[in-house]
């Protein structure tokens, strides 16, 4: 019996850590690979990475995150690693995180030749981040409980009496909702933006944990209308949930677009491969791929066929946002009104 115990102890305390060490050694940096951190959802990012790997033979090591689950985030990991980074590329789901990386000194400028045809207003003029395919912030409503003529057309409709106690948004301190809030402050000005949020809470609007919860809550009928992202909407519709969607404020300030961004990491261990990956991300092929995927991303380039359920970008009235300044605006309201409002109402 004692021999058996010694054997088991050996297995437990020697072999397991040894295997870990072995695996650690085998996972050290290889040539012909690129390490990509992305805040884009795994199910959307992975097929793109696999396609790049297939086309170029360069192995993609992907680290995914999701804004939905409010993890402490890859962004903090990137910032912490900035003196000796592991990542080569950060594929951001929105321009704010990309701008934060630039501000924290973790990004390097790279003006990709593949960016030709992409509108410049969505990208950093110095080349620290370049935008491609976009999501849109959308109004959703429960089709079974809200008749078509009463559906919301503007985000201000969420504060209307007909959605009293039945409108919802995700926590505005996180993800795309926080970016939306910053955009409203930029476009409407502080006074009108603050009024919008105050009216929302006075009308009994609910703050939910995530965009996914907004989608589920509206689909179940717990809420009647809400704000979420176009990829959530597409997934919900493909699942057969009774949701209708609207590009908000087409007669007013327009719809907020949230483009993806490619960022080259400063001191990237595999710089050449990283640049090739960024070139691939910014190519028309990737825009097409993302349009066809369940993410239903709208191509920023004109002339590329977008997702069938959404109109092409040229037909959408977009919100006139200064994407370079958005991170700064967000930082200001996060430490001021938005934080206080969220604390008070959640």
């Amino acid at each position: 019996m004692n021999a058996a115990i010694i054997l088991r102890t050996f297995l437990l305390f020697i072999c397991v850590p040894a295997l870990c060490c072995l695996s650690a050694c085998s996972s050290q940096g290889e040539k012909g690979e690129v390490v990509v951190y992305t805040s884009v959802d795994d199910i959307f990012a992975r097929p793109v990475a696999e396609r790049f790997q297939k086309l170029t033979g360069i192995k993609v090591r992907l680290v995914t995150d999701t804004e939905e689950t409010k993890s402490t985030g890859l962004l903090n990991r990137l910032i912490a690693e900035k003196d000796r980074p592991v990542a080569d590329v950060f594929w951001s789901g929105d321009p704010v995180r990309a701008a934060v990386l630039k501000k924290k000194g973790a990004a390097a400028p790279y003006k990709s030749p593949a960016a030709r045809g992409l509108p410049e207003k969505f990208s950093d003029p110095e080349g620290y981040w370049t935008s491609f395919s976009t999501r849109a912030r959308m109004l959703i409503y429960n089709k079974q409980r809200v008749p078509a003529e009463k559906r919301p057309a503007s985000i201000f409709d969420l504060n209307d009496q007909r959605f009293h106690g039945a409108a919802c948004i995700a926590n505005p301190l996180f993800g795309t909702t926080s970016m939306h809030a910053a955009a409203l402050f930029q476009v409407l000005g502080s006074e009108r933006a603050e009024k919008f949020f105050r009216d929302f809470s006075e009308n009994g609007g609910k703050i939910l944990a995530s965009n996914g919860d907004v989608k589920n809550s509206v689909a179940r009928g717990t809420c009647l209308a809400g704000l979420t992202d176009s990829d959530d909407v597409n997934v919900a519709i493909s699942q057969g949930l009774p949701l209708g969607f609207v590009f908000p404020d087409q007669d007013g300030m327009g719809t907020l677009l949230i483009p993806n961004c490619a960022v080259l990491i400063r001191k990237a261990p595999h710089e050449q491969e990283a640049k090739r990956f960024i070139d691939f991300l910014l190519s028309p092929d990737t825009e097409k791929l993302l349009a066809e995927s369940k993410a239903a991303q709208i191509p920023l380039r004109r002339g590329i066929k977008g997702p069938e359920q959404f109109p092409p970008i040229e037909e959408i009235k977009t919100m006139d946002v200064d994407y370079q300044e958005l991170a700064g605006t967000l930082e200001k309201i996060m430490n001021g009104f938005l934080k206080e409002w969220t604390d008070k109402n959640s």
Partner: peptide
């Protein structure tokens, strides 16, 4: 645990809970 793994797992070396965690937002329920 997903918090620690998310922050320090080597690229390409996810465990199953983390994989579930990162796809749960948009993958089919």
């Amino acid at each position: 645990d997903t918090g620690t793994v998310l922050l320090i797992h080597p690229p390409g070396a996810q465990n199953l809970p983390l994989a579930i965690f990162t796809i749960m937002a948009n993958a089919p329920e």
